[in-house]
Amino acid sequence: MVDALIVASGVQEVKESLSAVSSLGDVEVLFYGKDSDKADEVAKLGVKVYVLKSQHPGALFNAVKKLYDEKQPKVIVGYGTKNNRDALSRLAGTYDLPMATDVIGVEFKDDHIIYKRGFLSERAIATEKIPYPAIILINAKVFEPVQREGSGNTEEISVEEDSVKLLEIKPKQLSGINLEDAEIIVGVGRGFKKKEDLELAFKLAELLGGQVGASRPIAADYKWLPEDAWIGISGKRVAPKLYIAVGISGAPQHMAGVNNSKIIVAINKDKSAPIFKLADYGVVADLYQFLPVLIKKLEEKKGK
């Protein structure tokens, strides 16, 4: 028996998960995926680490199930990554376990768990109560990562994949830019008519010493930008001091990713776009007319 089983594919994820379950006793880790060679780093946090080299979601499900059956943890915790959601929702379905996702706060009481999470595409915060055993998937960067040293051991775990075959892995083109660290972000949306026009946003970002991010359709669907530019509830959550949303309507799923910005500016040609109610400063204008003027003014200022 252990109190908690962490299911994670990154070292930072383990540190934050350990922090989320710090009020519980015995914790073990299932560490999986392409970074699983970092398992020693995880063991140095003083936890026992089971290592699954595969990143096949069916193998992950089988590994989690095996450990769950053996260890009967009260809590399973990790980030809400796609692989975690895939494997853990199947575990939840197998044993009718409650599963909370996008958790931003959690209390482990004697006979129940109380957690907080985004609700209504993060227009609201839900507080809910569930019994043990349960699955808790936390948001990244909410729980202070633990700093500690110890010595745990690692043990490789081998399981079958399931009947679904992984035929091929196609890498995505990524920019490698860490939007989470950017102080200024220019966000681009479907107000841009074609990829080449994003040049205007890059020019603006460069003048401001910032980076360019995007709404989901621009990055994931049209692929005009690499997918690590995708901001929102299912992409990155950023917190720059200045977020300039250009040609973005202000859907709650997008705003969930930028609501922690200090100042939000919206540039949109539709004066009834929802983003104006969610921004500090709004400019009702066609981006194709306004951005060149804004760029010129900023250049003039810089020139002085």
Binding site: G80, R85, D86, A87, L88, S89, R90, A92, G93, M99, A100, T101, D102, G118, S121, I233, Q253
Partner: peptide, 8 residues
């Protein structure tokens, strides 16, 4: 937005 029904 929990994305858990399909897997269950």
């Amino acid at each position: 937005t929990t994305g858990q029904i399909a897997g269950r």
